[in-house]
Design a protein around this nucleic acid. Sequence first.
DNA 1: TAGGCCATCTGGTCCT
DNA 2: AGGACCAGATGGCCTA
Length: 189
Amino acid sequence: MKTKNRPPRRRAPVQDTEATPGEGTPDGSLPNPGPEPAKGLRSRPARAAAGAPGEGRRRRPGPSGPGGRRDSSIQRRLESNERERQRMHKLNNAFQALREVIPHVRADKKLSKIETLTLAKNYIKSLTATILTMSSSRLPGLEGPGPKLYQHYQQQQQVAGGTLGATEAQPQGHLQRYSTQIHSFREGT
DNA sequence: TAGGCCATCTGGTCCT
DNA sequence: AGGACCAGATGGCCTA
């Protein structure tokens, strides 16, 4: 298993190998805003540096076509890139916040995104199972939140799709699955 | 070196 | 119309 506690990386500022030095990239984070002859997709300098290996994999040119982009179009694209970056940063912040509330063993190792989501899902399920167990045991056989909660839970499980296995449909299954998963992460599998 | 994970760019589509 | 969202593509970093 690999560790994922790398320090946060930031992609090296794009320095267009094709762009004329001194042009564009006002903050270093922008790609070749220069007069790129608009292959539509050739904005990544590394791509060009790599000799455009995926010639056939290129996406088709944008609406502007092979004729090149106008300055206003480039400006809009750069603004869009910046918004997308901010959006992804927010998403990553949310992932980090989620990591911090999920109990897991490998405190020294950063959970990957997929691990975070998977653990969170099973953690929620295990908490749900715990609540159901506690509430139903407190008021056994009497009208109270317990039985209703459990009925509601079962309904939700059915609505969630019949794809759930028999074990999955039972509260105890979630606890077991979650603890098993934590254990597997600890083992690094 | 291969594979996993990630950041970023980009064009298309959906939504307000 | 403009921004948000999404998915594909690509390259960098890191570990086994």
